[in-house]
Design a protein around this nucleic acid. Structure first.
Lengths: 341, 341
DNA sequence: TTGTAAGCGTTATCAC
DNA sequence: GTGATAACGCTTACAA
């Protein structure tokens, strides 16, 4: 239908529609100062020809690529993938694509690496997952480089347009409420890594709810962790070795909670009869471990979608909300504590 | 140092080096017909100016982007992420970036979607993960569109330059050997989904090893599955309900193997004392479930790296191998069978 | 409201 | 071997 079978270009559209390429360009870019019938005429030709603007050419002219970047330092795999799916929900059927960029937050060159990356790829914007989303220098870098960004975090790290937030603190309060409701009084906490905002928020939620219930939190009912499985094993082991024993534990994520299962099993402590466990994330392991784990699930995919929309279509309704409520997923790892003898 | 603080362009290099831009271009593209000292002179200027070619401009001129695409339909999350890491290992410090594209193999429009995607983004090449890597139409599409591709698969799906392969069949034979060595004679199989090459290979490996050992595989020792947790629960449940019971099972992936743990536990069957379980993938759950699972681990990250190198640097040594041997990761889910009474 | 001309930073063509 | 010059497909002045 067209000369050769190459993709039609803006020139083809202009020629067929009998207008200049600039006018076609205006149609593509939704310029407001166009006569309605010109626009319609051009749109008809675009549809007829099946014309799609070439992103490479636009990228060159605009000095900005139609690419969204996903910056992360390896939170858990399912989180990253769910977030990716959400981003894809947002950019499906658009010219945008998603490029992924794992980074190493322990490398001193991280910021420079990212600068080079942004400079080279000229991304439209980046989405930053925790924990590096908490790095204000990184956000400043994006701002300086004129690269859009949205951070995902568990606190109000930034302005609404740059943030999708989960309400970790409040959710953990809910976890404690639930455990107390089940009759628990001595509840332990396995913390997340020092320096992680999410870990901080979860601990604060835990402490404030315990306080609200008038419950004591002895020093040794709080043990450190680093979000890794092994730290959950060790943490729970310490918790289970002091008397009087806690009857329940909140682990700051599922992986550590799974570790707590191990520690319990190794000591012959039965979950949930002797020891109730609650995790955080609702990752696959929570559903697959035995007994199935009660945990906090957050809408990562929606957050991914909203984050991407904040960049590519800031006025869409779905781009608005910045806070995404998590919910308690009750399964079978919590039971009322055994009667004291 | 330069006029304004923009990135230097090829023109700046040409001017400072006192050559034409085409010559600089030749240096960048390693054209062989250049005088050595011209090349060295230009290279010195490039280094001095910190010049980096602009990928957007190259993309426009070459009608091909410096992007690698990762096409997958959601195998497990850890697999995808490990593969991504491998790809990143390959393209770190190059101008390439990785764009991800989850697809839905059940959608009738999948192929058209992918065609549009390739047409629009003009990818340098794509990496295709199983199960869609097994789709020959998809490979043909890439070929037609002049888009490089490498498939990851569990069989010789394609020529070496388009393939990174794992030796599933052989590995599963090894699993059976191991179980037999431990004393098992009645061994069950939970299959993967019909139509998946990996599922086929794993079954064939199982059957051929059993045959080699002269062991009988009754009809009801093979149960269907779909790589999902629940099918593992159901499959193992069926296996455990027929007499004489199998003493061990090979589940075609870890997720189903985890399901088998559940089924056993629900019936009061103890793993591994009464029932040995072996999975496939060495996904995180294998290490985190109790007792830790014996499984087959394959070098996904290296495969990702090799796959990417086949596209971007086909002559590098690391790009050569097409077959990547997996290995048995022995943990605690296998024990000799209880003595018959 | 629309069109013209000049880029954006590279590579391809084809002389020299 | 090397260098003008014209693409590549779009956008941004600036004119009309």
């Amino acid at each position: 239908m067209n000369k050769s079978d190459k993709q039609p270009t803006i020139n083809d559209v202009a020629r067929v529609a009998g207008v200049s390429k600039k006018t076609v360009s205006r149609v593509i870019n939704r310029s407001p100062l166009l006569k309605l019938d010109t626009r319609e005429k051009v749109e008809a030709v675009i549809a007829q020809l099946g014309y799609v603007p070439n992103p490479q050419a636009r990228a060159l002219a605009l000095r900005r690529n139609f690419l969204l970047g996903l910056l992360h330092d390896n939170p858990n795999a399912q989180t990253v993938l769910n977030f990716q799916e959400g981003v894809l929900d947002a950019i499906r059927d658009t010219e945008f694509a998603l490029v992924v960029r794992p980074v190493d937050r322990h490398s001193p060159g991280m910021l420079d690496d990212i600068r080079n990356f942004l400079e080279l790829q000229r991304l439209y914007g980046v989405l930053i997952l925790p924990p590096i989303s908490e790095d204000d220098e990184l956000a400043a870098l994006c701002r300086d480089m004129g690269c859009g960004y949205v951070r995902m975090g568990s606190a109000a790290l930034d302005e609404a347009e740059h943030l999708v937030q989960s309400n970790d603190r409040q959710m953990v309060e809910g976890v404690v409420d639930y455990l107390v409701e089940q009759g628990h009084r001595r509840i332990g906490l396995i913390e997340g890594p020092v320096g992680f905002r999410s870990a901080f928020e979860r601990r604060e939620g835990f402490l404030s709810a315990m306080r609200r219930h008038g419950l004591d939190v002895p020093q040794d009912a709080i043990v450190p962790g680093n979000y890794r499985f092994n730290s959950g094993v060790e943490g729970a082991d310490r918790l289970l070795s002091v008397e009087p024993r806690v009857t329940a534990v909140f682990a700051s994520n599922d992986e550590m909670a799974a570790g707590a299962y191990h520690a319990a099993r190794a000591r012959g402590v039965e979950v949930p009869r002797d020891f109730s466990i609650v995790g955080f994330d609702d990752s696959p392991i929570a559903a697959h471990i035995w007994p199935p784990m009660t945990t906090v699930g957050w809408p990562i995919r929606q957050m991914g979608k909203a984050a991407a929309l904040k960049l590519v279509a800031p006025d869409m309704a779905d781009a608005r909300p910045s806070c995404f409520p998590a919910r308690l997923v009750t399964r079978s790892s919590v039971a009322p504590p055994a009667k004291e003898i």
